[in-house]
């Protein structure tokens, strides 16, 4: 009898208890490289029509360049840096002028933002994506003379081919500099309108002089869109080094 009560009690306890609490007793971890797995056909079949459509668009020829446009063919400038700043300026200035009645003084971007050279031959939509894969937007910043001074010191200290447009001509001397913008000597009392990207305005690449400008004018123009528009309207692209930034 005693035995049965025990069994009953045990059964009662078992069934009245909730699911027993779980405790982690062991953990294992591993990393798998995605390389040698056999691709699943049902996935390839879904991807194929998208890939075909995309490749067709990406391979659309916009223009032509007789020479490779490189990031590395100069020291303080490069043909790709110059092209980048000049084409964005050319595309953005009419928009800005139309909205504000003012001209942009010059354009400036960052060297590391040039993501890929353009090989000689046809230039495609894909080239524009490779050059500018990000969804950055063009902004015009009203910069004080003080911030301009920081910008100049940044260029002098960096010694890299950061893209600046042709209006900006800087001669770096041993302990000083000469700067003209649109052939007019730099005036520290003037406000300058500088074209750049939202990324750099936010302090990207430590261009902190763009961080708190007098004014930010958003022209609602994506950087890549301006590149594609420029390529689309040109029969061919010519670039050159013109000594816009030089050091003595």
């Amino acid at each position: 009898m005693k035995k049965y009560i025990l069994i009953f009690l045990t059964l009662f306890l078992v069934f009245s208890c909730k699911t027993p609490k779980l405790y982690v007793s062991k953990v294992e971890a591993s990393l798998t490289e995605i390389k040698n797995q056999t691709p699943l056909n049902e996935f390839e079949e879904v991807i194929a029509p998208y890939r075909n459509k995309m490749e067709k668009e990406v391979n659309t020829v916009l223009t032509y360049t007789p020479t490779t446009i490189s990031r590395r063919d100069g020291k303080l400038e490069s043909s790709l840096s110059n092209l980048m700043a000049d084409m964005c300026y050319e595309q953005a200035n009419p928009v800005f002028l139309n909205r504000t009645g003012k001209d942009i003084d010059f354009a400036m971007f960052n060297y590391d933002g040039l993501r890929s050279d353009i090989q000689k031959g046809n230039i495609t939509v894909g080239n524009a994506f490779e050059l500018m894969p990000f969804e950055n937007t063009l902004l015009v910043l009203a910069l004080s003379g003080e911030k301009m001074e920081e910008l100049i010191q940044y260029l002098i200290a960096e010694k890299r081919a950061h893209p600046v447009s042709k209006q900006f001509r800087l001669l770096i001397k041993e302990n000083s500099y000469n700067l003209t913008i649109n052939n007019i000597p730099f005036d520290a009392k003037k406000t300058y309108y500088v074209l750049t990207s939202d990324y750099l305005q936010g302090g990207g690449d430590n261009m902190n002089f763009f961080k708190n400008p007098i004014k930010i004018i958003d022209i609602d123009y994506k950087l890549r869109a301006s590149i594609i528009d420029y390529f689309s309207k040109k029969e061919s692209i010519t670039t050159q080094l013109d000594g816009r930034i030089t050091a003595e």
């Binding site: 609490k21 779980l22 405790y23 982690v24 062991k26 294992e28 971890a29 995605i34």
Partner: peptide
């Protein structure tokens, strides 16, 4: 890459 973590559980309260 893909990561993988395996958790083994039991009902013993053997510090986890």
């Amino acid at each position: 890459n893909m990561g993988r973590i395996d958790f083994y559980f039991d009902t013993l309260k053997n510090k986890t």
